[in-house]
């Protein structure tokens, strides 16, 4: 099954469940002078779903978000927000569902964090009493009365997230939101997203940090050269890509290379030996992994320190970006 088939299947599942997507894009394209940035984009995001948008720089991730927000006009295709066609200048009702965190936002250095959020709360017609609540949620309550110019990059990022949370958004569009956050900040950030997902908030998030996306996203969308080259759950994409599994081990107490070669003969693998670490590396098709492991475990006197490296998002990303056709 190809990756695009995976995508259409997941969309069919949503339709079958009768869930109206918060956002639906069909055949959306965008050109800039002399450059086609996005081509025939089809994408759906259901309530409570976290969709991760990945791709190298300049592949159209930010442009896609701006098209959704109505900051840019698409050249063709249709965008539906809560099932309704989005107008060129988004209606107030359509804009009300968004919470947006741009990639880089400097805010106003002379205002305090609290004043900044009061300002954005007023603009979103949100009660100012919510401001302290969102400051607490993003862990900035202690710095609420400091001027923004004294904030670190991570604190500004938290402030940005806080403004995005004002007004009870139904769709969060986060452009590389964990940039500048420290590891504990990233952990807290995903905890917040988890709670919002449980409340039914749909999230579209771009990021380069594949390791942090992999366990947290429901759907992964990979943009390459302006087209969606992969769309589906991380697990299904990795499975469909048939990326090789890697098994490493050291020599065991009863190591005998002839016995090892006899053992491995029955499997389709690639074996390499690393002199520096005095270890073997076996690369095999994922469908052969289980049988290979059973064989290795049956001869445990030959090997020690067995490590299995299953392919992850990073490997998938690299393979997809290398231009290989994955079917």
């Amino acid at each position: 099954m190809s990756l695009s088939q995976t995508a259409s299947n997941s969309e069919q599942n949503r339709e079958a469940e009768g869930i109206t997507p918060v956002l639906s894009l069909s055949n959306v394209s965008k050109n800039f002078p002399g450059k086609k940035v996005l081509k025939s984009i089809d994408l759906q995001i259901a309530p409570g779903e976290l969709v991760a948008l990945v791709g190298n720089n300049g592949q159209g991730k930010t442009t896609l978000m701006k098209l959704i927000l109505g900051l840019l006009n698409s050249d063709s295709g249709e965008i539906l927000i809560n099932g309704e066609s989005a107008t060129s200048n988004r209606s107030i009702a359509q804009k009300s569902i968004f919470g947006y965190l741009p990639e880089t936002t400097a805010f106003y250095p002379n205002l305090t964090g609290l004043e900044t959020l009061y300002y954005f709360a007023d603009l979103k017609q949100e009660s100012r009493s919510k401001v302290l609540e969102v400051l607490r949620i993003v862990g900035l309550a202690h710095a609420a009365r400091y001027r923004v110019k004294t904030y670190s990059k991570g604190m500004k990022q938290r402030l940005g997230l806080a403004q995005a949370l004002l007004g009870k958004p139904k769709l969060l569009l986060l452009d590389e939101p964990t940039n500048g956050l420290d590891p504990s900040g990233i952990h807290e950030f995903y905890q917040i997203l988890g709670r919002l997902k449980n409340e039914g908030v749909a999230i579209l998030m771009s990021s380069h940090l594949l390791a942090e996306i992999q366990p947290r996203s429901d759907v992964l969308v990979l943009l390459k050269d302006g087209v969606i080259s992969a769309n589906g759950t991380v697990e299904s994409l990795i499975c469909d890509a048939e990326l090789p599994s890697i098994i490493k081990f050291h020599k065991g107490a009863g190591f005998n290379e002839t016995l090892l070669d006899e053992l491995l003969q029955q499997h389709t693998i690639e074996k390499t030996y690393n002199e520096h670490t005095d270890s073997f590396v076996l690369t095999c098709h994922p469908s052969h992994k289980q049988a290979l492991l059973l064989s290795l475990l049956s001869a445990d006197e030959l090997i020690s320190n067995l490590i299995v490296n299953d392919p992850g998002l990073e490997e998938l990303f690299l393979q997809l970006n290398s231009g290989l056709e994955i079917t």
């Binding site: 927000l69 968004f98 741009p102 954005f120 603009l123 017609q125």
Partner: peptide
């Protein structure tokens, strides 16, 4: 240049 113009344009007002 501060990055707030796009943010403000995404807000629910004209």
């Amino acid at each position: 240049e501060r990055g707030t113009l796009d943010l403000l344009r995404s807000y629910p007002f004209n």
